[in-house]
Nucleic acid binder design. Structure first.
Length: 587
DNA sequence: CCCCAGCCTG
DNA sequence: CAGGCTGGGG
């Protein structure tokens, strides 16, 4: 019997042996016969890689043997300590102030007039307080008298602009709150039509209404045009008002938190150039609006880069051409990454241009929704609204609408698929997410090919780009728990299936890339099939399948916790996650 | 008592 | 995939 085979069972938990001998699976007479036949044939077993102790791979050794080797392996790598740039360096205050002024000026000259400012409430107060404070104290920037003068002027102009916008925003907010109140009772329709539902009739009509109504108006009327027409539009389409109001309310609250986030996110990143330290604090929100400037990268790469990184793993398939043009998104300096697919995103320079301009639109919409909603940009709103829906709950079931579904697929950025500028907007909108995104999910799934039971340390290394709150951590853990669940369910299913089919030969239980089991798994963890599944995973899958096969054939499944023994084995087969998954820091 | 993995469910 | 529940371990 099995016990007589001197192979792997030597060091294995005795349960494997004893139960095989004592409990020859009475429920499965067919199988047990087959098994017996198998076990009589030593060659069968020895040929089978599962029980071959000669295999160099630790995974194919006995669990007990594995223990030390694999653990040591996985512990060898330590997370790189937090970059020194994370530490505050406030000593260079003078330089910082100077740099700050220069930066402000630079930002103003390079940004188009009227460009959005990140947020209405928070930004204003912060910036204004900061700036007025500076001026009152007579900030000693003697070194740059000319710059100071022009800078002041420009800053004042910008502040005026800012104030105008904020006032406008306040008014709009009031209107919307009011409207919302009025409309909640009047429109009792349960469903809100989506914007893309019938583009010719819904927003189109509305917008043409706007235009026809405004015909003959003098240009001075234009000031009130927005509000008035908006009202008309709303009155004619009450159900959309609610929608719009919701969006705006949502976005207002989002904007507040986002600008706060952007401040904090920009802090460590700007540390890279210490003179910008103070700069980062006060001007980050301002900078974030200057998307054409490099400063955009500074303030936003905290989130933007997140995405490129998560995406960069998608392209590991060796046969795929690796394009090393590698213009990182938003010019964030990064070490060349062989797996980078960012280049694919920007292969077409035209689309890159689109990207930046559309991105501006997107940003403006996100940050400064009031001045754009009533302009004839329904398609922008369309994408915007989609992203609102997605962002509202990135990974939730609610993301099931066909529209957002396509969007999610698009956001995964298949390399060979030409990415339309429109999609780039969506992608960029997507970058504004905080927390875990679908790209993180995708990354996590690919990680599953290496580790079924990632430690929180590994998770932190691989998802260093997200703030590790308890919530995030448990979400990640939950993801892997779900991954495992699916994995084991498939294993059990296929093992039972094999058993039913009367598979008697262990060699019949292989998991190759052509096998159905692999197909199912690949479909689940690597849907786009753009990642070369490591051979190791196939081995682990094979081991798992055979574990299930053996356990079921021995009737262990009558024990309610029979799977735990298998889990115990499989968790030792985790391998180290490749470096590509880990932090390649921008600094 | 808390934490966590696993299970079940939607 | 996420939420709720549960049993086991510290």
């Amino acid at each position: 019997m099995y016990a007589s085979s001197s192979i792997c069972f030597d060091g294995c938990p005795a349960e494997h042996l004893s139960s095989l001998q004592a409990d020859p699976a009475p429920s499965n007479s067919d199988t047990s016969v087959n098994l017996q036949k198998d076990s009589e044939n030593m060659n069968t077993l020895q040929d089978s890689s599962y029980y071959s102790s000669g295999d160099a791979e630790a995974s194919l050794m006995c669990p007990s043997q594995l223990d030390s080797s694999t653990r040591q392996l996985s512990r060898r790598r330590h997370p790189s300590p937090a970059p020194a740039s994370y530490e505050w360096n406030l000593s260079s205050g003078h330089q910082a102030k100077r740099a700050r002024v220069e930066n402000i000026i630079k930002g103003m000259t390079s940004s188009s007039p009227g460009i959005c400012y990140t947020d209405a409430t928070t930004t204003t107060t912060t910036n204004q307080d900061e700036e007025t404070g500076c001026m009152q104290q007579g900030d000693p920037i003697k070194e740059l008298p000319l710059l100071r003068e022009t800078g002041m002027r420009q800053r004042q102009a910008a502040r005026k602009q800012l104030e105008r916008q904020h006032q406008h925003l306040r008014q709009l907010r009031m209107r919307f709150t009011q409207l919302d109140g009025e409309l909640t009772d009047s429109s009792k329709e349960g469903k809100y039509p989506t914007w893309n539902e019938s583009p010719e009739t819904s927003p189109g009509d509305a917008f043409s209404d706007l235009y026809s109504d405004s015909e003959g108006s003098s240009s001075r009327k234009y000031q009130g045009w927005k509000k008035v027409k908006l009202m008309n539009y709303f009155q004619s389409k009450p159900e959309r008002i609610k929608l719009m109001a919701d969006v705006l309310k949502y976005e207002l609250s989002r904007a507040v938190s986002r600008s706060v986030d952007s401040i904090f996110k920009s802090i460590p990143l700007i540390q890279a150039s210490p003179e910008n330290a103070e700069n980062a604090m006060s001007d980050a929100p301002l900078q974030s609006s200057v998307s054409t400037d490099d400063t955009f990268g500074l303030s936003c790469c905290g989130t933007a880069d997140v995405q490129t990184e998560a995406l960069s793993l998608v392209m590991q398939k060796p046969e795929l051409e690796r394009n090393n043009k590698s213009s990182r998104a938003h010019h964030v300096p990064k070490p060349p990454n062989p797996f980078s697919q960012d280049s694919a995103l920007h292969e077409n320079p035209a689309s890159e241009k689109h990207n930046s301009t559309d991105h501006q639109h997107a940003l403006m919409f996100l940050q400064d929704g009031h001045s754009h909603i009533n302009q004839s940009k329904p398609e922008i709103f369309d994408t915007y609204w989609s992203s609102v829906k997605v962002r509202s709950k990135v990974n939730s079931r609610s993301v099931r609408s066909p529209h957002t579904h396509t969007m999610l697929l698009e956001s995964l950025c298949l390399p060979h698929v030409k990415i339309e500028s429109d999609n780039l907007v969506k992608n960029n909108m997507y970058m504004l997410n905080e927390g875990l995104t679908t790209n993180h999910l995708k990354k996590a799934k690919l990680m599953f090919f290496y580790t079924r039971y990632p430690s929180s340390l590994v998770l932190k290394m691989c998802f260093h780009d997200v703030q590790f709150t308890r919530c995030i951590t448990s979400q990640l853990i939950k993801w892997f728990s779900n991954f495992r669940e699916f994995y084991y369910i498939q294993m059990e299913k296929f093992a039972r299936h094999a058993l039913m089919e009367g598979v008697s030969d262990m060699r019949g239980l292989t998991v190759g890339r052509e096998s159905e089991l692999f197909r199912v798994l690949n479909m689940h963890y690597n849907k786009a099939n753009d990642y070369q599944v490591p051979e190791r995973f196939l081995e682990v899958a094979e081991v798992t399948l055979r574990e299930f096969y053996v356990a079921i054939s021995m009737g262990k499944d009558r024990d309610p916790s029979w799977k735990k023994a298998i889990y115990k084995v499989i968790c030792k087969l985790d391998s180290d996650v490749p470096a590509e998954f880990k932090s390649h820091h921008t600094g």
